[in-house]
Amino acid sequence: MSAFIEVKDLFFRYEEAENTPFALDGVNLTIDKGSFVAIVGHNGSGKSTLAKHFNSLYLPTTGDVLVEGMNTKDDEHLFDIRKSVGLVLQNPDNQIVAGIVEEDVAFGCENLGIPPKEIRQRVDEALRAVDMYEYRRHSPDKLSGGQKQRIAIAGIIAMEPVCIVLDEPTAMLDPQGRDEVIQTIQKLNREKGITIILITHYMEEAVLADRVVMIDSGKVFLDGTPREVFANVGLLKQHRLDVPQATELNAKLRNCGFDLPECVLGEEECAEALFRLLKPAGKEDIPTEE
């Protein structure tokens, strides 16, 4: 896999003044094309600030962000960058521009100056990709939060980006809406090969990624597969982050000296590990439920 976004020695502060603290404090990061990366951190850790650097909404104070080799500071490439890196924000209501679903999805394409016939095709395709095709003539304010967020995602997909950055897309949704959005994201990553950067503080979502990057006070603290990252339960807790319950249980038992794997993700894996530990000698398989 080739590098798609490169972040080099990124420092960023919101105000010019010398003594204000850096919101991003020396971030180095490479994101591969086609990967699914979760960026986690507690509120105010700088994760959203980082997200807004990926499509040049914010520009580094020092350092560089390169998207497919194009520097985000370079005005010439602004629209090329925004075309290939789409950003979905937290509040679905505030990012829908038009009063009809399909017209909102078309908004980005219209801005790019794509001919009407092709826009129609792209919009239909994007709406099918997020399973909202039947709602194309509806007004967004009659839809649920999860549906609205999927419309916002469709609006980005219609622009055919290489990468979608989602800045806490599920923070304002109910559990059902959250599931819908996460499933949509996973589907886009697997079936369309779209690079996904998911900014979240729900660890259950981060577990689904190929790679988890943990950020606190503007610095990258952990970077690896979910298994590697969640093995550091103590460190994550120190940085005010939750760990999936099953993972935490496993880690606590392991600390007490039980012979358990270094890290488990999800309840099923945890149950399996516990079963292995507890199973009476002689029996080999996990009994299937009857």
């Binding site: 629209f79 990012q95 521009v97 399909e102 801005n111 790019l112 794509i114």
Partner: peptide
């Protein structure tokens, strides 16, 4: 938020804009 979302979707005023429904 809306301004940001519009910027993300390459909004740049009326010049060079097409419409889906003509």
């Amino acid at each position: 938020d809306l301004a940001m979302a519009m910027e993300c979707r390459c909004y740049n005023g009326g010049n060079g804009r097409t419409r889906m429904k003509v």
